[in-house]
């Protein structure tokens, strides 16, 4: 079965990058995957989102209409995608920035103060990684260790310092759940 994730927030929060990282980790695991970003004016200041599908089988449509999981980093994104979530699906939300609780009663919600945690680490820009840490803990999609390898590989030799900061943020998110 395919696992379908929508990541959404403001442009600039690293939403697309977080999605890419999930896709990259899936590729390293030998899984099938697709990553589809929103593009256009949305990228500049508005909301940004991406669709990530991970599967053992070839992937049909890369467009997600009923996600299994929702990683949301702002209010408008929760408004936009909450109704699309599969019954029994998972919402990871950044409680620092999303001002309201999830309305649906048939989904599993994890609130993590991602932006606040990232700020406490001195890296406000890594709230996306904190969110991914919480997501990994909740879903067990990838072991943290193999995810960390994905981070290092994706950022490459020259950005290992940044990779370490990302790994720290993922770990903080993991432990916050």
């Amino acid at each position: 079965m395919a696992y379908k994730i929508i990541l959404a927030g403001f442009g600039g929060q690293g939403i697309l990058f977080a999605g890419k990282l999930l896709a990259y980790a899936a590729m390293l695991d030998g899984l099938q995957l697709s990553w589809l970003p929103s593009y256009g004016p949305e990228m500049r200041g508005g909301t940004a989102n991406c669709h990530v599908i991970i599967s053992r089988e070839p992937i049909g449509s890369p467009i997600i209409t009923n996600p299994d999981a929702l990683i949301v980093m702002n209010g408008p994104s929760l408004d936009k995608f909450e109704d699309q979530l599969q019954p029994g699906g998972t919402v990871i939300l950044d409680s620092t920035l999303v001002g309201r609780p999830v309305k649906r009663g048939d989904v599993d919600t994890v609130c993590v103060a991602a932006t606040e945690i990232a700020e406490s680490l001195g890296r406000k820009g890594l709230a996306n990684m904190v969110m991914l840490g919480a997501f990994l803990k909740k879903t067990g999609l990838f072991p943290v260790e193999s995810f960390n390898v994905a981070i290092k590989k994706m950022l490459g030799e020259n950005k290992q310092e940044l990779a370490e900061a990302n790994i720290t943020a993922v770990s903080a998110g993991f432990n916050a759940v």
Partner: peptide, 10 residues
């Protein structure tokens, strides 16, 4: 199309 251009796959 825009989807194929923008999407990532292995």
């Amino acid at each position: 199309d825009g989807t194929l251009g923008q999407m990532m796959e292995p």
